[in-house]
Write a protein that binds this DNA or RNA. Structure first.
Lengths: 180, 180
DNA sequence: GTCTATAATACGATAGAC
DNA sequence: GTCTATCGTATTATAGAC
């Protein structure tokens, strides 16, 4: 018996994948547990409720985004950073068209299960907008705030349409336009 | 005993309102039935399954959109028509920021309950994009198709952000920008 | 067509042995 | 820490009287 196990992490990873593709409400704990190779009852050793697991999923997603912008931070100019960010969106065009699930869209789905989840989901979106606004500000734009919100909104919208049209190229063409 | 009753329609209207505000998965049939003043069991006389009711809700929403563009059609120029459409979005900024529920966002929530629902939800989005593309085409734009998709994507994205930020003015400012 | 039960099921959560 | 079994409850859906 190992003193430490990676089950907690496996649950988060599997939860993230299932929730991304099916949505929170339609993803059951049994589902996540099975995908993780963890017994249903055992999952409750790691998370007191389903909502707690969701919170962990959101935190993991936010951490990932922070890592992404940290990596992007190496690019010299704010403009290059924004473009690198858009490139990273294009890179995931296939899963986007298939699942159509920007992390933020989850925020609309929840409310009841865990009071903090909605805030946590929105946090991801707002964090992105803040980061984008910073880049625009560094570019000397006076309307940086609105521009940041606009950029993230546009990406969310494109993801949405690409999913509705089931066409990954929509991501590429539209985000390509955004870069200009 | 009336030969015809408006219960079917009442169920659709109530369903639409509840689903708009709470989402499909968290809206129960008992909930809709009560709001309609229809007994739970009786609802099944009108709709064989919950998914069937959802389909009817989507059809109603699509019909509404067709009416809206028919009314807008009176405006002389395609440009004026597009602007009238954006105005209609701004007009509903409060419910948008509160519920954050563009009809299209439902498409991500469903799949299981009724196979056709997802297609039906996407249909609403695609219809909008087609209409917008037509206007751009009438304006002589060669990239009309992409522009139409872009416009609808932008609106969806803005609605999204406005909801995340719980700020109706985001709708007004961002859609105002789109008009330019 | 409409109603009041109630069946059937799905799912979150817990109990308790190991 | 992990497992199997099960409880409690919410919700879709049906049965059957009127």
């Amino acid at each position: 018996m190992p003193r430490t196990s990676d089950k907690r992490e496996r649950l988060i990873t599997a939860g993230r994948e299932r929730i991304d593709s099916k949505g929170f409400n339609r993803t059951t704990l049994a589902d996540i547990a099975e995908a993780s190779g963890v017994a249903l009852g055992n999952a409750y050793y790691y998370f007191r409720t389903k909502g707690d697991l969701l919170d962990a999923v959101f935190s993991a997603e936010t951490d990932d985004f922070r890592e992404r912008i940290a990596a992007i931070g190496k690019h010299g100019s704010p403009r290059a950073r924004l473009q690198a960010f858009l490139d990273s969106v294009i890179d995931s065009k296939e899963p986007i068209a298939r699942y159509g699930r920007p992390i933020g869209s989850l925020s609309q789905e929840m409310n009841k299960s865990s009071g903090s989840s909605r805030a946590r989901a929105n946090e991801g979106l707002i964090l992105r907008a803040q980061w984008a606004s910073e880049q625009f500000r560094a570019m000397g734009r006076t309307d940086a705030q609105d521009l940041g919100v606009w950029l993230i909104a546009s990406i969310q919208g494109v993801i949405f349409m690409a999913n509705a049209m089931a066409d990954p190229d929509v991501v590429e063409r539209q985000v390509g336009q955004l870069k200009a």
